[in-house]
């Protein structure tokens, strides 16, 4: 397997946009010339049900087509999942988990089944409410994971995402600015307890 490949696993609930966020991240990475994979845990999405989505990002063509069992990073879009889902299962020690939470990272460690690696948190709820007036955690989480993985330069990310939003929200341009704001704030505000 390519040494440069980064594998990311997303945990969210149906309807929160974890799948969309994984696709947007793939898209942003793609725009910088990377090879990407973005795919959901295959199945029908039901509102509220725990869902998983995946990203692979690499400088070389990606051939592997299995789920990700030993991710480099894990993103948790909904903090309440921590009590039911073993989100850090297989997560590499040298990797990191990024959680949507207003808490400090270390406050969550006890919920992570003895996970010893880095923990980051970002208050996606507040950011989303402030910037979009509604709770759409996926854009802030995207900003946070992009920052933590550092898979691309800040400006590159913002430029790529602006283009994506322009495309995605072609019919409602008024939400582009809010989304960009959410992305940037999360990028800045994500805080870590590095190991």
């Amino acid at each position: 397997m390519s040494k440069e490949m980064i594998e990311i696993r997303w945990h969210g609930r149906g309807g929160q946009g974890a799948k969309t966020a994984s696709l947007l991240l793939a898209e942003a990475a793609f725009s910088t010339g990377k090879y990407i994979q973005g795919f959901p845990e295959y199945g029908p999405e039901r509102m509220g049900a725990p869902i998983t989505a995946y990203n692979r990002i690499s400088d070389e063509k990606i051939r592997i087509h299995s789920n990700i069992y030993e991710p480099d990073y894990v993103v948790v879009v909904d903090e309440t999942l921590l009590k039911d889902v073993d989100v850090t299962a297989g997560l590499k020690k040298e990797g990191a988990v990024v959680i949507n939470s207003a808490k400090n990272p270390e406050e969550l460690r006890s919920l992570l089944n003895g996970y010893e690696g880095s923990i980051y948190t970002v208050d996606a709820r507040t950011i989303s409410m402030d910037t979009l007036g509604k709770y759409f955690p996926n854009t802030p989480m995207l900003g946070a994971i992009a920052k933590v993985t550092n898979i691309m330069e800040e400006e590159e990310l913002f430029k790529a995402m602006e283009e994506s939003f322009q495309h995605k929200f072609a019919t409602k341009p008024e939400v582009i600015e809010g989304n960009m704001e959410a992305l940037k704030r999360a990028y800045k505000e994500v805080k870590g307890s590095e190991r």
């Binding site: 696709l23 793939a26 090879y35």
Partner: peptide, 8 residues
Amino acid sequence: IVSHAVEN
């Protein structure tokens, strides 16, 4: 695996 996965 392929139908719903975004790839290059």
